[in-house]
């Protein structure tokens, strides 16, 4: 059993601690919950972790992320101990080499870390999958997403390395749950887990693009609208090969289900239609003339149908879905899914 080893700071009032954290640049611009030893220990106890346990590393920055620093920053974000299994699994995903966390959290491209949660944990901790999916107002979503940002800032070196030009509000917190649609396999089942498992998927993402089609009542009409949004040329995903996330709202899903479409068919359709000829880049100055041996005349929005993280969610009313492009390229970062557990995070 190891003891908490972080430096202890003493204040007369909790508000003084909050102001001190602002002054030190340890927050994301919002007030924090003071991370008292008791609160931090409760977090660690919930996942049966020792303070010194190593959750993962960032080799490019010589950083080791301990369970203690994860717990401290999760407290600061406003997490409850019951959220800790999701936070720990999310950090495991973020620190997986395939995620390549140094790139998206250093890049001028300003990616956020989108967390997609699946499985029974959604209902156990009250994660929102419905109305106002990305708009806040739910403690679990807001604080779990925020915890990842604070961990990266305070222990992962992002306060030093982050060179974001513009960014987007999801950098503060971006965590959603996938709504259950019995007819379709949820994301974690598509990625090899059982439906009864709980998982979190980390994805380096740009901001969400809303897709408005209240008129079409055919799969093709809805999906062509999505394909159109997906194929703006001045984007990472059209100029390179990136994964993307697509959140289909319940009304759009209902239309697809009425016509017997499954996720695979949706993704295949989008792969076929979310593409533009490479010659269309030239007027924008985005691409040089093709090499003589260049045979592929199409630029696709994503490199293969399975590079779309297709999930369902959002409020029951309104025919608005959302496209969330990825950062960089698939050679630099891909989505990583980890199982949410109650212990054994090292």
């Amino acid at each position: 059993m190891t003891q908490l080893s972080s430096k202890k700071l003493e204040f007369n009032l909790a508000q003084e601690a909050v102001e001190h954290f602002f002054e030190k640049g340890w927050t994301d611009g919002l007030p924090i919950i003071p991370p008292t030893p008791e609160r931090v220990q409760a977090m660690l106890d919930y996942v049966k972790a020792q303070p010194s346990d190593i959750v993962g590393t960032i080799p490019e920055r010589n950083r080791f992320i301990t369970a203690e620093k994860v717990a401290i920053n999760a407290v600061m974000a406003g997490c409850l101990p019951a959220y800790m299994p999701v936070v720990m699994a999310a950090m495991e995903a973020v620190l997986d080499p395939k995620f390549g966390v140094h790139g998206p959290t250093a890049s001028t491209g300003g990616a956020s870390i989108l967390l997609i949660v699946n499985g029974p944990i959604i209902h156990q901790i009250g994660l929102n999958t419905g109305k106002n999916l990305m708009g806040g107002a739910h403690r679990a979503n807001a604080t779990i997403g925020r915890a990842i940002g604070l961990i990266m800032k305070n222990a992962g070196g992002s306060s030093q390395f982050d060179q974001t030009t513009i960014g987007h509000p999801g950098k503060i917190s971006f965590c959603i749950g996938e709504a259950d649609v019995p007819e379709w396999d949820p994301l974690h089942v598509e990625r090899g887990f059982n439906r009864s498992d709980s998982t979190v998927t980390a994805f380096a993402s740009e901001g969400p693009h809303q897709i408005n089609n209240h008129v079409a009542h055919t799969p093709e009409g809805i999906l062509m609208s999505i394909a159109d949004i997906m194929t703006n040329l001045a984007t990472f995903h059209m100029q390179r090969s990136t994964q993307c996330a697509l959140v289909l709202c319940p009304e759009h899903v209902a239309t697809l289900l009425e016509h017997g479409w499954d996720k695979a068919r949706v993704k295949d359709f989008l792969f076929e239609h979310a593409r533009r000829r490479k010659s269309e880049f030239y007027p924008f100055g985005l691409r040089l003339e093709p090499l003589a041996e260049e045979k592929d005349e199409w630029a696709t929005a994503f490199p293969s149908p399975d590079d779309t993280l297709l999930i369902t969610g959002g409020g029951p009313a309104g025919r608005f879905s959302s496209f969330i492009p990825g950062w960089g390229s698939v050679s630099q970062s891909v989505a990583v899914t980890k199982q949410v557990r109650l212990s054994g995070f090292t």
């Binding site: 700071l9 009032l13 601690a17 954290f21 003071p34 008292t36 620093k69 401290i72 920053n73 222990a155």
Partner: peptide, 8 residues
Amino acid sequence: VIVLDPTE
């Protein structure tokens, strides 16, 4: 009020 340093 005792709090812990979040940085590493």
